[in-house]
């Protein structure tokens, strides 16, 4: 059963009720809710994706719905979320991510904030306990954990897999020792912290640096918490890679996610290629949605050997 109470609190009452009637009562797992002004309410579940109906006609989202949802999502305090609005997304209680689209207000050529929000995309955070367990053996070489990258296009379950890897390594699951894991949770999606307490199970030996830029957070954790592993979500900015470089020199194991499709695509990205070269004997997991969200397609090592292929035999698996 999905824990969606936080989401219903943040939705206009009639929108929440409509979705509950249509999807929750049908025992579907909601993955995404999209509200667009004067267009039908869209819901994507584990079984289907559809526009909700009001009798014969589509159930139309009005300006009032968007305004009310924006106020509630921002805790009636938009001034407190200017930075998030500028980035175009906000992570709400429970780790669910809300993307905004509207009219950008520019200052000196840069986005200062968003006004007249016209579309909202609410991505429901999924916690699938145990989803990483079968892949952990591929991440070890001579009983040592390798640097690991989880790669996929958006919406394929990178963060969910990363969160469960953190949990497994923190608990010491699969007969492995327990590691001290430092997490830089820039967008609050991994641990979904509330008043300093993680809302997701990330294990007993995990320290979370919340709401902090990745590069600064990684270095801060390195100095302050002596972690065995540092986990971050969605590397992408120049500064992130500089932070990673320092981390790799410090002998801490990195587990991270990045957007991408395949090994060829990663190697075409100069920053990524440089990072892969520095990750000696690292592992790269590629995810897709082929057999549902979180399908592991391939696992490579950074020397260019394929260690696993979906449908094929696992090769070069050493513990």
């Amino acid at each position: 059963m999905q824990k969606l109470d936080e989401i219903w609190k943040l939705m206009p009452n009639d929108v929440g009720k409509r979705i509950k009637d249509e999807c929750v009562l049908q025992h579907e797992q909601i993955q995404e809710i999209r509200l667009r002004v004067l267009r039908p309410l869209f819901v994507k579940t584990n079984k289907n994706k559809y526009f909700l109906k009001d009798g014969e006609n589509d159930w139309i989202v009005t300006n009032r719905h968007i305004k009310e949802a924006v106020e509630k999502l921002g805790g009636y305090s938009l001034y407190a979320f200017e930075e998030e609005l500028k980035q175009g997304y906000l992570t709400v209680s429970g780790g669910h991510r809300v993307g905004f689209c509207g009219r950008a207000v520019l200052e000196e050529g840069r986005v200062k904030t968003l006004r007249q929000v016209s579309s909202l995309n609410i991505r429901i955070a999924g916690e699938i306990t145990g989803c990483a367990e079968q892949w952990l053996p591929y991440l070890f070489e001579n009983n040592g954990l390798c640097h690991t990258l989880i790669v996929s296009p958006p919406g394929c379950g990178k963060t969910t897999l990363l969160r469960d890897m953190i949990r497994c390594l923190s608990y010491g699951i699969s007969g492995k020792e327990s590691y001290n894991v430092g997490v830089v949770d820039e967008r609050g999606e991994i641990a979904a912290m509330k008043d300093g307490v993680p809302q997701m199970d990330i294990g007993p030996c995990t320290d979370v640096q919340e709401n902090c830029p990745k590069a600064e957070g990684m270095l801060s954790l390195l100095r302050s918490m002596t972690p065995d592993i540092i986990a971050v979500d969605e590397l992408g900015k120049e500064a992130d890679f500089i932070g990673v470089e320092e981390l790799l020199h410090a002998g801490v194991t990195l587990i991270s996610t990045v957007h991408g499709n395949d090994m060829g695509g990663l190697q075409k990205n100069a920053k990524m290629q440089k990072m892969l070269e520095k990750m000696e004997n690292g592992r790269v997991l590629f995810l897709s949605k082929t057999n549902g969200i979180g399908t592991v397609e391939e696992i490579w090592d950074t020397q260019g050997n394929k260690r696993y292929e979906r449908g094929g035999k696992p090769c070069l698996l050493r513990g």
Partner: peptide, 10 residues
């Protein structure tokens, strides 16, 4: 609180 800390209203 709003000016210096940006604390949400609640």
């Amino acid at each position: 609180q709003i000016s210096y800390l940006g604390t949400p209203l609640a």
